[in-house]
Design a protein around this nucleic acid. Structure first.
Lengths: 208, 208
DNA sequence: GTCTATATTTGGATAGAC
DNA sequence: GTCTATCCAAATATAGAC
């Protein structure tokens, strides 16, 4: 019996943690990531700021949890969308170019739909913030996924991969900085991949 | 006579303003842009924080002055380097591709040599900060310079120019975020321009 | 022109009552 | 588990003496 009670407690606690994180995202979207304060966050979930310390040991821990959440959300998005768009039809082997375009679109849309999340995951807007090892693992997983997709297109040099990450990171950054909510750079996604593949496949690559 | 005295006073005042801004850059480079405080800044020039208000009406005004300084520095860099590398020899007309590569290298090196300045000029790390109109003018001038250089290479579509700014912004962002002080993305500068021109000149462009 | 003194606000975090 | 009551630190900014 006491086991069940403990489980319920843990569950309630976890739910409240989620509510706090949801409110944190909402506030960060409104006033920017540095503008997120314990006071406002407490008010956002109907608590005093001090009560938050029952759920997170520090503000840093909240940032870290958000970072981890963001990376997991991206991995989930890949799993959903990538599978939904082509997995069943088995086109992954047949057309690696299309898959790279797809992954690139998923990434760019993910970045554009929440500039604050993009900021937290990609740039480092919080001075002393270093994410935990577990959070880094998810980020590295995303990178490897992308690298594999580029390789599958016949482009294998590290230089080329750096160019790819630069290209796609730039489109996301420009979109959020200069046309937030729009599609001015988003719409260049496929064109960018095409440009990239044309250049690197013919130079260092394998099959056309 | 009183005019001379007034001039001296203005001069001294202007010199102190410069000293304050120099110290501001130094501190920002050390502790990040949000870590710049009036206290530390005062200490950096041998004053109390309160005395700074004799030179700048607010912290915001200091940020704005830094923003303007940064943009002017970039324009100066273009004027110096671009002219020094090719102006005398008059290659600008003969080889627009080389000029675009040159401008791109100047820009990337400028961004990489001071990540904090890059952050201030390109991204918007300070929540409520909006630069003054005069500062914006310099930034727009930079953009037009680049657009003209891309046009000279026979690439005229706005889409293509957006791709160019995305590409080059991404290289700078990746360099500073993932390899500060290194050259991992910097060295891709010419290759990026080559890739870009090959793609867009053959598609929408003019002469090869 | 710079200082001391101070006002004001804000934010992160702890202790202990209930 | 949440609250009240505080603490402490830091930061922007103003007033007035020297």
């Amino acid at each position: 019996m006491s086991g069940t009670v403990a489980d319920l407690r843990t569950l309630r606690r976890e739910l409240t943690r989620r509510r706090i994180l949801d409110a944190a995202w909402e506030l960060a979207r409104e006033q920017g990531l540095p503008g997120l304060t314990m006071r406002d966050l407490g008010a956002g979930v109907g608590m005093r700021a001090q009560s938050l310390y029952s759920y997170f040991p520090s503000k840093h821990a909240i940032h870290d949890a958000m970072f981890a959440q963001g990376n997991r959300a991206l991995l989930d998005r890949y799993a959903e969308k990538d599978a939904a768009d082509a997995g069943d039809r088995g086109r992954d082997r047949d057309n690696p170019d299309a898959r790279l375009c797809r992954l690139n679109r998923i990434w760019l849309e993910f970045c554009a739909e929440d500039p604050v999340r993009h900021q937290l995951l990609i740039q480092r807007p919080i001075p002393g913030f270093e994410p935990s090892a577990e959070s880094y693992r998810a980020a590295a997983e995303v990178l490897e996924l992308t690298r594999a997709a580029v390789h599958a297109c016949g482009v294998t040099s590290p230089r080329a991969f750096d160019m790819f990450t630069g290209l796609t990171a730039g489109l996301a950054a420009q979109q959020n900085a200069n046309d937030p909510g729009g599609t001015r750079w988003l719409r260049l996604a496929d064109e960018a991949v095409e440009m990239f593949l044309q250049h690197y496949r013919h130079r260092h690559g394998g099959s056309p």
